[in-house]
């Protein structure tokens, strides 16, 4: 049952060194505030899972929190590369980084399997590509009914999933809408989960297409206004495209990144 706690308390309680951590949100509702709190608390050796690592994982990797990255598209959307990720892979700075690379469909189905309590998921995918050669969580399975060979991907069950949402009620039920990505699956696949929210309200007025995460599938809810910025929260604030562009220069240079990191840690 979700407890409503402060963000530092939630991260301290739920995210431990060496954990497999998924911070999900597909371009929209990326839990930046929670990611920054993980950096401030100095977590190390994390396996970071996200379909699109985005700036938040570039920051966690640059801050030395990560040992491994599980992902399916690692760029700065609309801008270019993730330079901290590339630096870590090429030179091991500030820590060596292992990768496990999938396609979006593969990652989405891994969460579906995890949420469904199944050991793997089946999809039409990966056939003829070079990914299965490099990624051990991709295999094939024969359909018992038709004999057809299909791709199989191992379930993802993070130790902890963190999502950001528009709002929660006082009981800790969480509501999110707009592009809802893979957050429901990522929360239901996880052993522990945290939702940060823009605000806590008395009643969750129904919103078309919204995902509701009942309080009893969450461990903690923390209020984090603008907690998805510089990504966006539909109905609350827009994506800060300028910040995404500016990250390119900050992340290209270790010194500029280190200055950014000190600013974050002092905040």
């Amino acid at each position: 049952m979700a407890k409503i706690v402060s963000l530092p308390q939630a991260v301290s309680d739920l995210v431990h060194d060496g954990d497999t951590v998924a911070l999900e949100g597909f371009t929209h509702l990326i839990p930046f505030a929670a990611g920054h709190e993980i950096i401030r608390q100095g977590r190390r050796g994390l396996t970071l899972v996200r379909m699109t690592p985005d700036l938040i994982y570039d920051q966690l990797i640059g801050a030395g929190c990560a040992a491994k990255l599980v992902f399916s598209w690692g760029g700065n959307p609309g801008v270019g590369s993730l330079h901290r990720m590339r630096d870590a892979l090429a030179t091991g700075w500030p820590a060596p980084l292992e990768i496990e690379e999938h396609s979006h469909a593969g990652m989405a189905n891994r969460y579906v399997a995890g949420a469904s309590g199944l050991p793997f998921a089946v999809l039409r995918g990966y056939a003829g590509t070079d990914l299965p050669t490099h990624t051990s969580t991709i295999s094939t399975v024969e359909c018992p009914f038709t004999g057809e060979r299909l791709a199989a991907v191992a379930a993802l069950n993070p130790d902890v999933t963190v999502v950001h949402a528009q709002r929660a009620d006082r009981a800790g039920n969480v509501q999110l809408w707009g592009i809802t990505g893979v957050q429901k699956e990522a929360v239901l696949a996880a052993r522990r989960s945290l939702a940060t929210v823009e605000e806590i309200v008395d009643d969750l007025t129904p919103v078309p297409g919204a995902v509701v995460l009942p309080a009893w599938v969450l461990d903690a809810v923390a209020v984090a206004p603008r907690g998805a910025a510089p990504s966006y929260a539909h109905g609350y604030y827009d994506r800060d495209n300028a910040a995404y562009r500016e990250w390119d220069a900050i992340s290209r240079d270790r010194e500029a990144f280190s200055r950014w990191l000190r600013t974050l840690e002092d905040a």
């Binding site: 597909f26 959307p77 989405a108 189905n109 592009i179 990505g181 893979v182 995902v211």
Partner: peptide
């Protein structure tokens, strides 16, 4: 980006990634 709000605002429907 592939998930900009403007895509959701003008969509007939928004479904999950899976």
């Amino acid at each position: 980006s592939i998930g900009d709000g403007i895509l959701a605002d003008s969509a007939l429907s928004v479904v999950s990634v899976p």
